[in-house]
Design a protein around this nucleic acid. Structure first.
Lengths: 297, 297
DNA sequence: CAGGATTCATAACCTCAGCCTATTACTGTG
DNA sequence: CACAGTAATAGGCTGAGGTTATGAATCCTG
């Protein structure tokens, strides 16, 4: 028969205390139970571990040699168990998350900060990549949670939540957009615009909206990063069309923003994970607060 | 509840094989048993380890993180168990032995060589010390087995075997001892003798024997090491009185030896160990062959 | 030195953890 | 769409291991 963890715990405890009786009370078992456990362990190893008579207990040479190694095993195992329970209790852990840059730089930091206030030992790994990157990273399990645009149909993924991300127009103080009753497609086509680079999901939404309306925008410039686009607006190159999720970037006195008055200027945002995959507790919990925050906002 | 070794083995095996059914057959349990073990482990850790549906099993991220650590624990433990069983089966081990120099250099090497032929992986640690040193080293448990002279009365020690060590006289070819019918006390007192140093157990036996016979020897020289005494004999300083156990030192063409014809010139040799102490298997086994060899010789 | 106290070992009994068989439920595949 | 293969569940049973009671040996104390 092979040794058992209880037998090993019994052995180490008796070795430390030098007494079956005291070890038994420490381990919350009866003294005869300990006697049997030690005997079974000795039989399993084929080696006598204690020299004992009715009054005294002492390790044999072999027993003495095994104590440290077995102690280490118990310590290691206990550490693993404690780690697992810490992770389960959100006492620590890592949230791995891929998100579109608009979110990563926009609403996400705030939500993370709020979450970490409640769970300070949880750390985050954020990959800010384009939409196709988000999907790829989840498929390869680089990341557990994804925040991406567009509708997900692939059954390999599970959509935890969907929300709308409406486009805003960002313009300098004094721009005529500020005076208009409503800024619709028509209004947008009258002014030079700063659009995101064609490879971005924001741009494809914008292009699709103009196309559906049968209009063509005046493209003054294209930017890969939203902060670049904002800089161009500040420089007077035109007005930018940026997603509402990223509106934090326009926190500048000289700029204004307002939603585009056309519901086609909307993209769908999904929180996704791999289908049939349980999230680590930390990610699971974060996904919940993320969903709730997006719903109430 | 705390995890169990069987649960951990089950987990690691399922993780490696990616299948409950195959893991079950490898572990010689039924598949439902494994299902339950994994569930219990997950409950104990508070963490889901596998994502499983009826067709496929795969590790969760947490599960994947725990596999190597748990594997290491199993490997370590298995190594300890194997080590213990090796020791028990005399596949290896160390015999720690303190012996009088006369034995250590005399009969002992031969007996050890013979023992190691049968158990080649057993190694020896020999402390060759004077009689009081043998006793002290056993008391302090520096050593498990002792080979010493004199009668042991201390109940802290257990005498495994006792044998007689008779004194021999060693003399050069041509010495008149060679022509005598018998070399008794009387004969010894007629010639200059080389005796061992007074601190040795051999000398105390010799002194006691002369005293009991009411005779005084002519002491030509004293030596601490028996090889020195033999050298003195070779140089013609006289005849030496040495124990039979050390007769191997006289393997020289120019010397002869014969037993002293007086049974008082005998010391008692004891194989001892600490009382109430089980010997390690290797020492236990060696003690047996030692006793048998001394009995048949 | 006798007897009480303490400690480990043994015995007898009992309970429930955990295994097995049988069956269900589900899913991927041809 | 049916079948084959896999994990989960249910129910019944067995034995490992626990408890209490008692024995045996040793140490301590008056």
């Amino acid at each position: 028969m092979n040794p058992d963890l209880r037998q090993i715990r019994a052995f180490v405890t008796v070795a430390q205390l030098g007494s079956f009786t005291r070890a038994a009370s420490l381990l919350n078992v009866s003294q005869p139970a300990l006697t049997v456990q030690i005997r079974n362990l000795e039989e399993a190893l084929g080696v006598r571990l204690f020299d004992r008579n009715t009054r005294t207990v002492s390790l044999t040479r072999m027993g003495r040699e095994f104590v440290p190694a077995l102690q280490r095993i118990l310590r290691d195992l206990d550490a693993i168990v404690a780690e697992a329970r810490d992770v389960a209790a959100l006492r620590h852990g890592i949230v791995r998350l891929a998100a579109l840059p608009s979110f990563a730089s926009g609403v996400l930091p705030e939500i993370i900060a709020q979450f970490r206030e409640a769970n300070p030992k949880i750390s985050f790994v954020i990959h800010d990549v384009i939409a196709s990157g988000v999907v790829a990273q989840i498929r390869e399990e680089q990341v557990d949670l994804g925040l991406t645009g567009g509708r997900i149909v692939d059954p390999d993924f599970e959509v935890l939540h969907t929300t709308q991300d409406h486009m805003h127009v960002v313009y300098p103080v004094g721009h005529s957009f500020g005076d208009m009753e409503q800024v619709d497609v028509e209004a947008l086509t009258l002014h030079p615009l700063i659009l995101m680079h064609p490879a971005t999901s924001v741009r494809s939404v914008v292009d699709a909206a103009f196309l559906a309306a049968g209009r063509l925008p005046i493209v003054a410039a294209e930017a890969t990063y939203m902060s670049t686009a904002v800089g161009m607006v500040r420089a007077g190159l035109g007005a930018a069309i940026l997603p509402g999720s990223a509106m934090e970037v326009r926190a500048e006195q000289t700029l204004r923003s307002r939603p585009v008055d056309d519901r086609r200027f909307t993209r769908e945002i999904s929180i996704i994970k791999k289908a049939e995959r349980t999230l680590p507790p930390a990610s699971e919990s974060f996904a919940h607060t993320l969903i709730q925050t997006l719903q109430t906002a």
